[in-house]
């Protein structure tokens, strides 16, 4: 702050508060909608204040299905999403740590070849190679299971780059010291490198968890079996009610449940989240 201008400061706060309200408005409406019953949700105008059916709806969603996805409960979908998000984030971190370690600490033929091969994945988002990738997964018999949902997505150029940067900043003396003490490559990796990069691992985990949780197109292709539906992809099916009008109170409850886990992760681990965001976008 350079000069004192109370009016301008007040104006800034007003703009920010307005911004926060606009950003939060859709969520508020979601919460309100999820706390009313079916009858209220067909009367225009829709309520702006929460009703009293929140826990009934929550219970119903967690134990039963919603709309035309009746066969599988939202609780199961949450578990599927959680399993997929964890497998993707942990898988990405594990294989990227290993490959970054090999590329930074070993001299071996084709080292740069492997590096560029990993780099290329950055340029091949799943959206541009939908059909052939689907075919590979189908041929490998990985449709409708957790492996098919996660493994094809766990290659990560960004994570490999990030760990490579981290390893490059670790002083050479550490490796020399470790070798004098008789540590082999695996020992050095497990006892020194991994502990030293744990904040980066955590930051990356936050970003990758959100990435995994929010996958949409991939689960849509891979899961024909309703037991494997993830929560994010199922919402669309629910809004596409065939004959009756969509049950908005239950759909909004599902929507709320679909966004709570990643939002909680971002808000509670804000520092790590910001770190992960700025470090992976390089």
């Amino acid at each position: 702050m350079v000069e004192n201008r109370p009016l301008l400061t007040l104006f800034s706060h007003l703009v920010l508060i307005l911004g926060v309200l606009v950003v939060a408005f859709p969520i508020w409406i979601t919460f309100v909608a999820s706390s009313h019953d079916a009858v209220r949700m067909t009367q225009v105008p829709l309520p702006l204040l929460p009703g009293s059916h929140f826990f009934d709806n929550l219970w119903q969603a967690l134990t039963e299905g919603v709309g035309n996805v009746k066969e599988v409960s939202v609780g199961t979908m949450l578990l599927n999403s959680l399993a997929m998000a964890l497998m993707i984030s942990i898988g990405k971190i594990a294989i990227s740590l290993l490959s970054a370690y090999a590329i930074v600490y070993f001299r071996f033929p084709f080292r740069m070849g492997f590096f560029w091969m990993i780099f290329i994945t950055l340029m091949l988002p799943v959206e541009v190679r939908i059909l052939p990738t689907f075919k590979v997964v189908a041929d490998l018999g990985m449709l409708n299971n957790y492996w098919g949902l996660s493994i094809p997505l766990i290659a990560s150029a960004t994570a490999t780059f990030m760990f490579r940067q981290v390893f490059l900043t670790i002083p050479d003396e550490l490796l020399e010291a470790a070798r004098i003490d008789g540590a082999g490559p695996l020992r050095f990796f497990a006892d020194i490198l991994v502990p030293m990069s744990r904040t980066n691992i955590a930051a990356l985990f936050v970003i990758m968890f959100i990435y995994g949780w929010n996958q949409y197109l991939w689960p849509l292709l891979i899961t024909q079996d309703k037991d494997m539906y993830t929560i994010v992809m199922s919402i669309k099916q629910m809004t596409e009610a065939s004959e009756e009008s969509p049950e908005w109170h239950m759909i909004m409850m599902t929507t709320l449940l679909a966004m709570i886990p990643p939002v909680v992760v971002v808000v509670t681990m804000q520092k790590l989240f910001v770190k992960g965001l700025t470090e992976t976008e390089k």
Binding site: A94, I95, S96, L98, S99, Y101, A102, I103, F106, F108, R111, F114, M117, I118, I120, T121, L124, V128, R129, P132, T133, K135, V136, V137, L140, I151, P152, I154, A155, S156, T160, P185, L186
Partner: peptide
């Protein structure tokens, strides 16, 4: 050892990225 370390990443890259893209 380094080949074993890069193997998982490279295998996934080839099977799910490079092969489908070339297809």
């Amino acid at each position: 050892l380094p080949y074993l370390l890069v193997a998982p990443q490279v295998a996934i890259t080839i099977v799910f990225f490079i092969w489908p893209a070339s297809q």
